[in-house]
């Protein structure tokens, strides 16, 4: 049972991280390796607010999300926008460089020591005799679900969201039809980085905060993105929960160190059978 809970929690964090990754992939057309570092930035900002300034974890989390979205946008502004005309491959390589810069800054400030949030101890809700999930775990699932719902409503119900989808489908056409592409691109970077920051805070709550968390998670984020169909925002939501559960449940059958290999085998299988991803592109 705790594996299922853990799997769902990991899946929720993955979902938030990958949705942002996918949005950037759709709008900018490249795989942003530096997106993983937004998780690190989010987790560490929340840590500063929580442990150093003594804030409660909820406002600390909100502050971290806002800070991360601004940092993510600044990184894009300073590093990615000038390289755009060099093409998507160069952007991918640049994003690796950007990831190193962000990672280096975080490590230079905080050092390599593992950190943890200051949290009051919490008792798990019980179902009969079995402990099911602690309140903070339930809150995390709710937050993730609300964020996904918010994103869904934003993309389907508002002018801005419709314009973003139009841009994702055909950038030039959207521009000709009077969509303010440069402003919306800024929105996308802000939203995607913020979601990444939130995912980082959640991962910090589930486990620990360490400087390599961005590097460790970007691979699994990419795998989720492939599984969900590159660029399909709804596909990755399902794929994230699936991968979270699959890697977590596989621990029952195989030693923990193989969970990455299982994810790897899954993407090879997906490439062989359905290279366009499991879900229809929306």
């Amino acid at each position: 049972m705790e594996f299922v809970v853990f799997g769902i929690l990991t899946g929720c964090a993955l979902l938030l991280a990958t949705v942002g990754f996918s949005m950037i992939r759709r709008i900018e057309g490249f795989l942003n390796v530096a997106h993983g570092q937004m998780l690190t930035v989010g987790a560490y900002t929340a840590y500063v607010l929580n442990a150093n300034l003594g804030w409660n974890i909820v406002p600390a989390g909100v502050g971290a999300v806002i800070a991360t979205s601004i940092i993510g946008w600044l990184v894009a502004r300073l590093i990615f926008f000038p390289v755009r005309r060099a093409g998507p491959v160069m952007l991918v390589i640049t994003s690796v460089g950007a990831a190193y810069i962000v990672h280096g800054v975080v490590e230079a400030i905080f050092g390599v020591r593992v950190k943890q949030f200051q949290m009051p101890p919490m008792r798990a809700f019980r179902f009969g005799d079995m402990p099911v999930a602690a309140p903070d775990q339930i809150a995390m699932v709710v937050v993730a679900a609300l964020s996904a719902l918010f994103l869904h409503l934003l993309l389907t119900r508002t002018e801005t969201g419709k314009a973003i989808r139009a841009m994702a489908n055909d950038f030039d056409l959207a521009r000709i039809r009077g969509v303010n592409t440069s402003r919306l691109t800024n929105y996308v970077w802000l939203i995607a980085s913020g979601l990444g920051g939130l995912a980082g805070v959640m991962l910090g709550l589930i486990g620990r905060i360490y400087t390599d968390m961005g590097w460790d998670n970007i691979m699994i984020v990419m795998i989720v993105a492939i599984l969900g169909g590159l660029g399909s925002i709804y596909g990755v939501m399902g794929a994230a929960i699936f991968i979270g559960l699959a890697t977590s449940l596989s621990v029952m059958v195989l030693p923990a160190q193989y969970s990455q290999s299982i994810a790897f085998l899954l993407i090879i299988l997906v490439l062989l059978i359905r290279p366009q991803g499991i879900f229809r592109e929306v």
Partner: peptide
């Protein structure tokens, strides 16, 4: 910092 400089070098070259 060394890794950071490598990243910076790459960005500047590109």
């Amino acid at each position: 910092i060394q890794l950071m400089l490598e990243g910076l070098l790459l960005v500047v070259i590109l």
